[in-house]
Nucleic acid binder design. Sequence first.
DNA 1: CTTTCTTTGTGCAAACTTTGACAAAGGTCG
DNA 2: CGACCTTTGTCAAAGTTTGCACAAAGAAAG
Lengths: 207, 207
Amino acid sequence: MDNKPVPDIVVGRLPIYLRALTFLKTEHREITSSQELGDRLGISSAQIRKDLSHFGEFGKQGTGYDIRHLEANLKQILHVDRMWDVVLIGAGDLGHALANYRGFAGRGFHIAAVFDKSGDKIGREIVEGLVVEDVVTLSERVKQVGWKMAIIAVPAEEAQPVANTLMEAGVKALLNYAPISLMVPSGIRVEHIDPAVHLQHLTYYLG
Amino acid sequence: MDNKPVPDIVVGRLPIYLRALTFLKTEHREITSSQELGDRLGISSAQIRKDLSHFGEFGKQGTGYDIRHLEANLKQILHVDRMWDVVLIGAGDLGHALANYRGFAGRGFHIAAVFDKSGDKIGREIVEGLVVEDVVTLSERVKQVGWKMAIIAVPAEEAQPVANTLMEAGVKALLNYAPISLMVPSGIRVEHIDPAVHLQHLTYYLG
DNA sequence: CTTTCTTTGTGCAAACTTTGACAAAGGTCG
DNA sequence: CGACCTTTGTCAAAGTTTGCACAAAGAAAG
C-alpha cells in the first residue's frame, strides 16, 4: 500500500482471485481465507495476502475475507465495476464463438460491434442484435464511438495491420488471438492468446 | 546448459521464439539475431540468448542464428518434432472453432476426437472426419487409445468433473478454456485460457 | 475474563529473473 | 592480411518476486 506502481505480475493475478470469489458465491459462501483461496488456486496464502496488501486491507484477523466485500473491491481495482464496450475484429469461427460467449457480461464486458472484411459475412447478424460491419469502416467507427478495447480474431497476416488501424483510431488495449506477436508502441497494452503456444508449453513436460 | 531443471518461465517463452522463427521463414529470411528477435517480441536480446543457453549453443558469433536450424532445435526441445493427438471435450461454439482451427497441424497438434454430452451434438460430424462422441464413453476411449493431452471447452460447472475423468484415464496435460481454476494433483500440468481474465488484466491499466 | 485458536498484514531473507558488460569468435572490406 | 564490425555465450550485479515467520487483532469456548 505505497505509491509505487503495483507489479504487473500481481495485477495479473487479481482477475484470478476475482473469478474464484465469484465462484465461491455460487456455493453460497460468505467468508473465505487466504489459505482457502490459495489451496483452490494453487498459490501460497502468503502471496495472496501480499498481493492484496498492495491495494489496502480487506480482511479481518481471526476471520478472513468477506467474499462480497473483497469481490466488490477487486472489481473496482480492476475497473470492472462498470461495463466496457469491446470491438471484435474477425467473424470467422473464433469470432463467432466470442460474439456468442455468455461469460463476458457478468465480468464487465460487452461486445459492441463486429467487423470482417469478407463480403459474405458483412451484413449478417452474427448474434441477436449484432450485425457484421465492413472492416473498411473500422477506423471511422472507432473514432466516432470512442471504443478503447478490441479483440483481434483475424488470420495472422492481417493482425498487425488491423492492430495498427485500431491504435491509430484510439484503441488502447488489445486482446490478440492471432498467432503472431504484435508490435505496439508503449502506452498500448496487448495480451496474447494462442492455443498452440500453450500446448507447446505443455508438451515440453511430456518428455 | 547444466542439469538443473530449466525454469518454467523460460520454457514458456520458447513457443514464442519458435512462432517468431516460423514467421521469419514466411518472409524468406535465413538468418536472424537475438537483437532482431528481441525487437520483434519486445524482449531484451540478452534474455533470448540466456534462455537459449539453457539448452545449448545454437548461434554463430558475428552472424546470429540460422533460422531453420534454431527452429528445428526448438521443436525438438519442446517435443513438437512429432504430432500429438489431442482430445477435445465440448462441441459448443468454442469446441467448433477449435476443431476447425487450421493452425494446429503445422505446430505439432491434431484433434483426434471430440466429445460432448448433448444428445443433439453426439453423432454430428463437427469437421470432415471427426464425429462427436458421447462423453460417457470418454474414460474408456482415453484408456483404450492412450491420449495424453486434452482441451477442455465445456461450461465451468462441468470442467472439474471432466478433468477428473481425463486424469483418471491417464491424460497428463490439460488446456482449460472453462472460466474456473482447475485443481489437479502434482504430475499433471494445466494451462488456463480465459478471455475475461485477460481483458480484466487490461482494464486495470485503462484507469 | 482468560485461555486458546485462527487469520491477517508485513518485515526480512531467500530464491529467482533480468540486465549489463565483455571476451571470444567470426565475418567484411579495403 | 589487418583493421574493424557484428554477434554470441556467460559472468556478475541488480532488480524482482516469493515465502517464512511472527506480532497483533479478533473470535470462540469454558
